[in-house]
Design a protein around this nucleic acid. Structure first.
Lengths: 245, 245
DNA sequence: CGCCACTTTGACAGCCTTCAACATGCGTGG
DNA sequence: CCACGCATGTTGAAGGCTGTCAAAGTGGCG
């Protein structure tokens, strides 16, 4: 059974059929340009991993020997300052790639935030493989460029948005839990803690909590549980996210 | 005369021989894997542009019809919020690529901040070209992944660093003016205004100015002119950039 | 049922922004 | 060559958003 998936990272709307509504990017497995033979070769080189919450996939400053592909679960990618300040640069989900950056050592860390399954490739195998599979290389290049756009989005958020705008944007960009049902009754699952949301949005736990409370009080969202949010007024949330209030 | 250059964007140390000290990335023109024939085909498709300061290369929301390669000068890439807040996501210099992101319309704008020369490719030509030039595709993939790391750096800066740390980091990452002379007497050229630095670092003009004054007063830097900085104490500046003071 | 980590809430402080005034520098034109 | 004028940059004072510190509340899991 082939486990490899390739999806754009940080894609705002991954909710329906695992495809990105914005750019149409899809898992490699449903991408026309990658045929079964290519996928088989990929799979043959893959090492399958299971990780518990909190376990490490990648440790900053260690030798960059592997490339990962997440097949289920969620992962946090982050960098640290020497005094412990943390910036989470992204959350990864099924289909996301990890560890592609050039260089001999990783410059970031990555850990599971819930049970994760992943494929691991030796970097040398990976290099050989893309050299022999132009379609894969093209798909990865598209993905990388897509991620750069997502990164620019995040820079805009971190550099210029208020706490309210940041949290609103975050809620809108998290993949929703309900793949089948579009429409206004959006339910968002948050596998990460408030601390992780804070470190992703450049805020503190307290500020994130206060904004959640504020959105709840105003009836824009409803907290079904700590990790389950229902967006009651998507239009209002979108307006808040873009600073139009 | 071939004008195409491919360099990693946001590379901290581009000072010596146009190569990145960190990862060794180099212009395509000196990259062994791209031969002269490939470069000739690239050049044949290139349209050469000259822009004055302030002129637009790319306008957000317009059709993404072209891909650019900067051959001289500096460019600002930015995104806007509806109320005018601006986040500059990067400054581009000779060798940088622009407009690679997928999608039918550009999601960011790009303007010259000083006289710029650039090459322009039609996106369809560009796609054909990389399909036929695996070495180019590989180089672009490496560059894209390199840029992702730079973007993560910037997220750490915007999300978790103080004003002093941001400005210090910025001064260290700007390419220095003196390609030949390494060592402590670093001279940094800043083609951008204080407003642009502020919008790049997620600060205000006033805060940037105050930090410059503070660094100047402490003897860490010296302002030769408004756009020319000499780093008197690189070690101190590095410590400040990483929050070790 | 109880522990413990996580979350929420409150009071206060600080960094950066905002608003304002002044200084500087550079290009233009006399 | 110098004076003028405007854009850009610097400096100062006050205020606000978010951070910090502290304590109470909540929920998940054994």
């Amino acid at each position: 059974m082939l486990e490899l998936k390739v999806l754009p990272t940080g894609c705002a709307n991954r909710r329906r059929s695992n495809a990105c509504d914005t750019c149409g990017a899809r898992p490699l497995s449903v991408c026309a340009s990658i045929d079964d033979a290519d996928l088989s070769r990929l799979d043959a080189l893959a090492e399958h991993l299971d990780l518990q919450s909190g376990e490490t996939l990648i440790q900053a400053d260690e030798a960059a020997s592997h490339v990962f592909n997440i097949t289920s679960g969620s992962v946090r990618v982050y960098r640290l300052l020497s005094d412990g300040r943390r910036q989470i640069t992204g959350f990864l989900f099924a289909g996301d790639f990890l560890g592609l950056a050039t260089g001999d050592t990783y410059v970031f860390s990555a850990e599971a935030i819930e049970p994760v399954t992943a494929c691991r490739f030796r970097k040398s195998d990976y290099r050989t493989l893309i050299r022999e599979t132009p379609a894969l290389e093209t798909a990865l290049l598209d993905r990388a460029n897509h991620e750069l756009v997502a990164a620019q989005n995040q820079m805009l958020l971190l550099g210029r948005k208020t706490a309210l705008e940041r949290v609103s944007t975050f809620l809108l960009e998290m993949p929703t839990q309900d793949p089948a049902r579009p429409g206004p009754q959006e339910r968002v699952h948050l596998p990460m803690t408030r601390a992780e949301i804070a470190d992703y949005l450049g805020l503190t736990i307290e500020t994130v909590s206060r904004v959640f409370t504020r959105l709840k009080t105003q009836g824009v969202i409803r907290l079904i549980s700590l990790s389950e949010v229902r967006i009651e007024q998507p239009d209002v949330l979108r307006a808040l996210a873009d600073g139009e209030a």
